[in-house]
Nucleic acid binder design. Sequence first.
DNA 1: TCAGTGATGTTATAATATAACATGACTGTT
DNA 2: AACAGTCATGTTATATTATAACATCACTGA
Lengths: 133, 133
Amino acid sequence: MTQNETLVYQLLCDADRPLSAYNILDALRDKGIRAPLQVYRALAKLVERGAVHRIESVNGFVACQLHDCGGSEVSIFMLCNQCERANEFTDTSIDSRLQSLGNDRGFQAAHKVIEITGLCADCQTAQTTVQKH
Amino acid sequence: MTQNETLVYQLLCDADRPLSAYNILDALRDKGIRAPLQVYRALAKLVERGAVHRIESVNGFVACQLHDCGGSEVSIFMLCNQCERANEFTDTSIDSRLQSLGNDRGFQAAHKVIEITGLCADCQTAQTTVQKH
DNA sequence: TCAGTGATGTTATAATATAACATGACTGTT
DNA sequence: AACAGTCATGTTATATTATAACATCACTGA
């Protein structure tokens, strides 16, 4: 792993939510990262390698939370709109169903995105506690 | 439907691929649309109403291809990287599996995104025809 | 007549992503 | 040692996507 990739990867591992490229840029300015391209290049490599996932719904990036993505080709992300935390899962049943949907239509899949946005359990209880008066 | 919404919706219905907001803006300049916000506002309403879907993977928008999204909460899109066409499907098995994944974790889902990018059947055969020599 | 609401229009700007070009560090060869 | 090749790096400029802030207009119901 190159210098810049290491910096970006470490930052993402320490973060508890997806970071945007510019979040990363700002956080790493004093480590020598000065331009967006330095971040985007590192991210591209990390994503290609599967160490980092891009979250399309929020234009952000997270470190992979599963060992080798659990051997699954598809990660499922649950994204809390409030605390912004991202949780990664895999599911063999969805995997195979998606697989056959593609096969049925002769579609050669390169990348799959499954993202669910909403409120995580913690943030729901936090909300009901502070309910309207 | 308001004037601007109608313009945007018609354009999307006629398009054979997802259009970006700025694609739409350019296409509708001579119909009186002059600023990005006019497009984004129309899109927001159309998406809210379910008439149009946002495709996160390509920052684009497509008219819904299913009658009332087939009654499903989740649409599955297959996006060809070459011809750029988007095909919309639903699948009850994935629906319910995703549902229970959320339930298991007490996650209150607001929106779900499933997008598969790759090569559609047509573009695969087109590629093998022009294969390397 | 007037307040309220929602669509509209306009300018400016924020946030996200890439193009184009120059340099530097390292490798393996001749 | 000199050189070509490759890949990471750095830098400036620019493209693309999205929203903020403010002003106006048209319609509705009291």
